[in-house]
Design a protein around this nucleic acid. Structure first.
Length: 416
RNA sequence: GUGAACGUAGCUCAGCUGGUAGAGCUCUGGCUUGUGGUGCCGGCGGUCGCGGGUUCGAGUCCCGUCGUUCACCCCA
């Protein structure tokens, strides 16, 4: 027993009927993305480690302690993708997409790997649906990207959604803010927690997000990034919020909103879902105007988001939406010889677009009927020796129990 | 990575102060020789997460380990 393997810590299998709800969710997402003109992009599950180190940033928890990195047989330093944006930016650069008509708009569904402590809504492998738009610095893109995500949540019926939005400014804004913030923190270092003092210099913005009382008190009096935005960054932010208001998308301006990637500039945002508990972030993203250049490409602005598939599933669990069964018809064949004889008939039904299942174990009618019921079949088609000799099948409505004889030739037509 | 709680059949759980495992559901067979969903009867299924210790004896106590959950942290 002890050597019976199980899924590694922080990973899990997805089984029916859960898979069905998941597939439906992904179908909906794809439809929403297409409605906005996004096209799919697929990037490798692993990248050169350098992509994330340079892209995501060395001060981030992701790069510092959460990456699954390894050296392959050829001595290459590789890392399982911990986030979705840097790989897309890398692909943009590699394929010279700046020569395409800009902006390019991509969506993806991909697994992400981070070695974190697992808990509800947080796994070491999780899937994200995401979107990236590269090649326009217009606030119109920010608005569209946030709108797609809000639209997706609405279409899925995710309950208790909240949106926080802020601006990280541009490098110039951040430098000015940092010059005011660091001295403030140093003056008050006695009131900061040990952990907070440790990261005071490398990423002081992170402290705005702290839940420590002492740190919070210091940060409440700290100079805000929002007060140091350049005119351009400030105007950009105002245009984004104006657009969201015009679309009727509710949001809360939260200058303390901080996100985990170093590449963010200007607009950052995070959607939360009250049904999720401690891991309440269900999706988030922001603008990353320096990332493409950071990865060796021409200066190219970009913005995107990621939203967690598992967290979406958790959020939707509480709504108790029933998914209809996927099976239309169960064909119960009574005679062993007929099981082979009637293979073309079953094939014909399937070719006509009817979902059909048959017994694959050679069971009796009673067991087959039970199977048909538990699979949620709308109709059972019963064909025994007598029916077959008469050229008919018995079609039973599994809801009402009504039965009728239908000629084999007309079967697919009747079942439509 | 840190702290706390929990870990008994596929699932949900019971098992009092230690004496060598039980229920419901699921699955399966029968009552119903070609018919499901209700009912009755039967069956399959567990070295009590794993390893060690205390004891005449441990699911029940102790330690370790793995896993899950919650909080910190971080994020989707």
């Amino acid at each position: 027993m002890s050597h019976r393997p199980s899924a590694p810590r922080g990973t899990h299998d997805v089984l029916p009927p859960e898979t069905r709800r998941r597939e439906d969710l992904i179908d909906t997402a794809r439809a929403v993305f297409r409605a906005y003109g996004f096209e799919g992009i697929v990037t490798p599950t692993f990248e050169e480690t350098e992509v994330f180190v340079r892209g995501v940033g060395t001060s981030t928890d992701i790069v510092r302690k959460e990456m699954y990195s390894f050296t392959d047989q050829g001595g290459r330093e590789l890392t399982l993708r911990p986030e979705g944006t840097a790989p897309v930016a890398r692909a943009f650069v590699q394929h010279g997409m700046h020569k395409r008509q800009l902006p390019v708009k991509f969506w993806y569904l991909a697994p992400m790997f981070r070695q974190e402590a697992p808990q509800k809504g947080r796994f070491r492998e999780h899937y994200q649906l995401g979107v990236e738009v590269l090649g326009s610095d217009s606030p119109l893109v920010d608005i569209e990207v946030i709108a797609v995500l809000a639209d997706l949540y609405a279409r899925l019926g995710v309950p208790d959604i909240g949106l926080r939005i802020s601006s990280m400014g541009d490098p110039e804004s951040r430098a000015a803010h940092r010059e005011a913030l660091i001295p403030h923190l140093e003056r008050n270092s006695a009131r900061l927690s040990e952990d907070a003092r440790g990261r005071l210099n490398e990423n002081p913005l992170r402290l705005f997000d702290s839940k420590d009382d002492g740190v919070q008190a210091v940060m409440a009096e700290a100079p805000m990034l929002g007060d140091h935005l350049t005119d351009e960054a400030s105007a950009h932010h105002d245009a984004v919020t104006a657009g969201l208001q015009k679309l009727g998308i509710d949001f809360e301006s939260d200058p303390t909103l901080v996100r985990g990637m170093d590449y963010y500039t200007k607009t950052v945002f995070e959607f939360t879902c009250g049904a999720l508990g401690a891991q309440s972030a269900i999706g988030g993203g922001g603008r990353y105007d320096g990332l493409v250049e950071q990865l060796g490409g021409p200066p190219t602005p970009g913005i995107g988001f990621g939203t967690g598939v598992e967290r979406l599933m958790l959020a939707l669990e509480s709504t108790g939406v029933e998914v209809p069964a996927g099976l239309r018809c169960y064909v119960a064949i009574l005679d062993d010889d007929l099981r082979i004889e009637l293979l073309p008939l079953v094939a014909e039904l399937r070719a006509a677009g009817i979902s059909v299942e048959t017994d694959l174990r050679g069971r009796g009618l009673k067991a087959m009927m039970k199977h048909a019921a538990s699979r949620g079949a709308e109709q059972a088609v019963i064909i025994g020796k007598r029916d077959y000799d008469d050229g008919v099948a018995t079609v039973r409505d599994m809801q009402t129990g009504d039965q009728q004889q239908v000629s084999l030739a007309r079967l697919s037509e009747v079942l439509q």
